[in-house]
Design a binder for these strands. Sequence first.
RNA 1: CGAGUAAGCUAUGCGAUAGCGUGAACGCUUUAUGGUCACGAGGAAAGUCCGGGCAUCACAGAGCAGGGUAGCUGCUAACGGCAGCCGAGGGCGACCUUAGGGAUAGUGCAACAGAAAGAUACUGCCGCCGUUUUUACGGUUGGUGAUGGUGGAAUGGCGAGGUAAGAGCUCACCGGCGCACAGGCGACUGUGCGGCCCUGUAAACCCUACCCGAUGCAACGUCUAAUGGUACAGUCUGUCAAUGUCUGCUCGGCAGGCAGCCUGUAAUGACGGCUUGAACUCCCGCGGCAACGGGGAGUCUGGAUAGAUUAUCGCACACGACAGAACCCGGCUUAUCGGCUUAGUCGCUUU
Length: 126
Amino acid sequence: MLFTVKINKNKDFLALYNKGAAVSDNNCLVYFRKNKLPVNRIGISTGKKMGNAVKRSRARRVIRQAYRECELLMPIGFDIIVCARKGAAECKSYEITSFFRKRLIPKMNDPDAFKPRNKGVKNHKK
RNA sequence: CGAGUAAGCUAUGCGAUAGCGUGAACGCUUUAUGGUCACGAGGAAAGUCCGGGCAUCACAGAGCAGGGUAGCUGCUAACGGCAGCCGAGGGCGACCUUAGGGAUAGUGCAACAGAAAGAUACUGCCGCCGUUUUUACGGUUGGUGAUGGUGGAAUGGCGAGGUAAGAGCUCACCGGCGCACAGGCGACUGUGCGGCCCUGUAAACCCUACCCGAUGCAACGUCUAAUGGUACAGUCUGUCAAUGUCUGCUCGGCAGGCAGCCUGUAAUGACGGCUUGAACUCCCGCGGCAACGGGGAGUCUGGAUAGAUUAUCGCACACGACAGAACCCGGCUUAUCGGCUUAGUCGCUUU
């Protein structure tokens, strides 16, 4: 992968869960956030809810393949975390690719993408 | 042909495009990197239930406690594994199952039922004595031992003899126990003799024999940036006398706590450990019933580190189960769509 580093620190994962913007469908849930670096950083999370080790590996591979296909289209300078959901083990990789293209990339390019989400959360609490 | 038994093999295949990890040589002044070639999950990789290797330690040693194993002989690095055999049980048979030491070392328990779950007693049977015509009733009495609806289990079973009534009291057969002899490395088997003391339970405590230090690769080792005196370690000095640790306890050993000075180290990251090993394949007029051992030739073919070993499409058919290495081996157990091979057994039909 050309412009991409892997995320392997629990600290980074927690920061994204709390402060990142999110997009989701049945197969996966994506958090993202600007990181002020010249590269993208990606992490893939497959929890035990997914199933056994074979299913989790399958989900991880499909997501990685989808990311690879979309990589050149993405803006640079983001942290991204993809959490696999139950559908990810059975679906084809182009399903996730199209999800990335139609939903995720437009939002990443939108400068106001994650401001409204934070406000929205606060408003719900009030 | 059908039914059944045992052992073993296999684990969708092929192609196209794109991509990932490791290694090799090549290209480039070097780095970055580039294309090329080779290789890249399993029979259970799983559960983590046993056994080892390897590593570390505040490991002297002894005893007790604790844990494990439990027919015999062998195999093995070792085992709770495997092989062969013995005993017991099941099947017409091929064959299968077996947590299979000790109940005369001791203690405990045996609900309900039943007279009784150690045995003394009660009830019964018979003798004797007394009362009485007999029957029957009674006894500070003697003998006897299993008749007593039960129960998982009742003093070996069953038959005959025997007797006042009975009883292994005697006898035949069967079963158990002990001793002797014979066979076997041994578990054990066979034969003979003997007397009848011997309820079950040890996945109840316990006894006997043998074995066991703890922790696991996030073990452990090497190198290193920055900061600050934060944490840890060490020497020395002063002071305190309680504590920690060696699986638990005892003896015993080892280490001390606090303050000050000085010296050093660690956190982070990288690399090693990390894959050549009790390895795999083939062969032998090799040894052994076998597990296994010996010899010869050849191969080396996962080593990731947020974790590579794939994604998408097409074709074929029997429409694809369970399932993904994380230090490495030997087993066990559990999950599993199907397909195939070999060797015995029983039954039927035909010749």
